[in-house]
Design a protein around this nucleic acid. Structure first.
Lengths: 204, 204, 204, 204
DNA sequence: AATGAATGAGAGTTCATTCAT
DNA sequence: TATGAATGAACTCTCATTCAT
């Protein structure tokens, strides 16, 4: 999955990374507050601590910032997700742990995830495709765990059901961010996780 | 649930309705294609068949158009939804019919729903609240059906579970639109409905 | 020779013509003073008596202004040139009158001609070609007169010489504008005309 | 004719000369391709093989580069021109040789001459005057040869005619570059030279 | 002497909105 | 009620120039 290359005039890779991190952080906050289109490049520059000229030394266009944000979010999500999944456990444990991990990541990165979720459609086509691929690869990881569960007899489930279950799990993760206005009135993350696990595993 | 009032200079209510319907139709297409921010008021006016001056006789600001669109979408969704629910049936039937109806509405109005889903955040606060209330009221309708199912013994389910199940059903409806890139590769609407019903009702 | 179309949002053709005339007049002065690149669209708008927004109702880009200027200049030059050539005269008279007319036009429109001459290369390719074609068509008109002179026995001259003489005449016209710093120190237009005619006709 | 001084932070004269030669060479190509205003200092630096910081060690402003280019072009033109004129010949030969030499220089340095011709107006006033003086001095050299021709009886010609003839010769040189789009379709340099000599000397 | 990251004024262009007709 | 020309604030992006290293 080749990363879309964002152009920079600056040569020092270390510096590029540092500056871009600053930008992404500022951009997430601003996009969160006012959305991508209402946020100006100058605001991002200022709140990143450098000038508009400097901003454009590290990106080619405003959309590149959005791409960097989306990329960073998925990077963060998948990294944390995979890290939480490292251990080898029996399938049942593994499944529950995976769902819990996903929800936890979504909770921890709720602002970032929300921004990405709401603004992806503003990405130029090429970047959009790249981001969707990342999503697909996460869903695939989830499917893999479900399949292991089936193999170990933990779940009796058809191929179709595997597919839809993986989609459902992803969406249940996202919905913790984009329906927070409804969900957090009623549930803590722990409650939410338990209830959704019950729903997924029909324990009732 | 008092409708947010959109200002118009024109007196003739009939005319207002007519013109706004034209606008909404054009706007949905354009927002769908390019998003709210990239669509200009001029484009909406032109594709509605009147001038920019006339457009502003019927609204106060561009955001009003988005509000009208979102309102119309929810109106359409709830109307069709309620219409499909008219009959009095035993609880089990009723539940399944409700879910199927929701999914069908989402399928029929996928473009509109998608627009609304992606652009709500651009609404001014007051309008946003109004739209969220509409969503809540639909979720409440769903809860009502679930409660009836419990009362009729069709579902054994706690209060918490009722709440999350209603949220889940709503989201499963939305996700048929916003994850269509993943879902339609695998499933028809009928398949999708059956699988989600199975998942909700643990029939396996 | 199809005119390159300059886009305008405004519908009233009369108004377009009027506004563009204002723009061209201002633009000629400003380009003359500071060149095309150092002149801002805002300056052109202001000195035309309207706002920057209005300016862009009548053109698509800054380069369009330059094109309009160049087009207007050639239009003016050829119109005046042809007008001065209307009468039917014996070839000799005709030749001298043509040269005098060309020089006179160049003199009258010296500012405009100078601007055009110095800035054409900033035109987008397509427009450049169009402008060069106009120049070529003028040169062709000159050749036609020369050929008539040969036919009437006024000039003994080969085909090659016709071609170069026409080019020379055009350039002698232009040079009255672009070498004015050298020429006007020494000559009036009348003197210049007489001397160049002598040189062309070898009367010495 | 005191050269306009271009400031440099660097002391080593040898180095200054070397670096500036690199710059001029690159600049001519770039100006030729995109014009002075569309060429960036960064591009000139890069294509000269050093950094933007280094560029500014050897000049004070972008316009200085243009000045250096124009100066170098005239230097080249006059040097080559004078070199071709070295020999002592009878006036007639001398005249023809001078014109041929001028045209040949223009042909050889057509890119450079064209750049200079099109961009001089972007020079700051002071530099412009300096460059025009160079042009005037060349014209004067040409006048000198014409005067010698008169003194040797090769040309019968008034003072006025000397002046205009010298101007004409210069312009005929330039026009080989700036009207090449028209002239090269028809003539080789040799043909062009012969025809213009014929025209100047009325040999027909 | 050489580098290149930083700067910010300023450029071209867009577009929601107004208002005279 | 309908029109569409006019407006100008605001946007993204560029680039000559500086200066610490």
């Amino acid at each position: 999955m080749s990363k879309r290359q964002v152009p920079s005039v600056v040569k020092d890779e270390r510096l590029i990374q540092k500056r871009r991190e600053q930008m992404i952080k500022s951009a997430v906050d601003l996009f969160q507050e006012k959305g991508f289109h209402r946020t100006t490049t100058r605001e991002i520059a200022r709140s990143s601590g450098f000038s508009i000229g400097t901003l454009y030394e590290y990106i080619g266009s405003k959309e590149d910032i959005l791409y960097l944000v989306c990329d960073a979010v998925y990077e963060g999500v998948t990294t944390r997700f995979n890290h939480l999944l490292d251990q080898t456990l029996p399938a049942g444990e593994r499944f529950q742990q995976m769902v819990a991990a996903l929800f936890q990541v979504m909770d921890e990165m709720q602002d970032e995830v929300l921004v990405m979720y709401q603004e992806v459609k503003s990405l130029p086509k090429e970047s959009l495709i790249y981001v969707l691929k990342k999503d697909e690869s996460m869903t695939k990881d989830i499917r893999k765990v479900i399949i292991e569960c089936r193999e170990e007899g933990y779940l009796q489930i058809s191929d179709e059901e595997i597919y839809i279950m993986a989609e459902n799990i992803m969406v249940k993760g996202y919905m913790w961010t984009f329906r927070r206005w409804a969900l957090r009135k009623q549930f803590t993350l722990a409650q939410y996780t338990r209830l959704q696990l019950d729903a997924l595993l029909k324990k009732n």
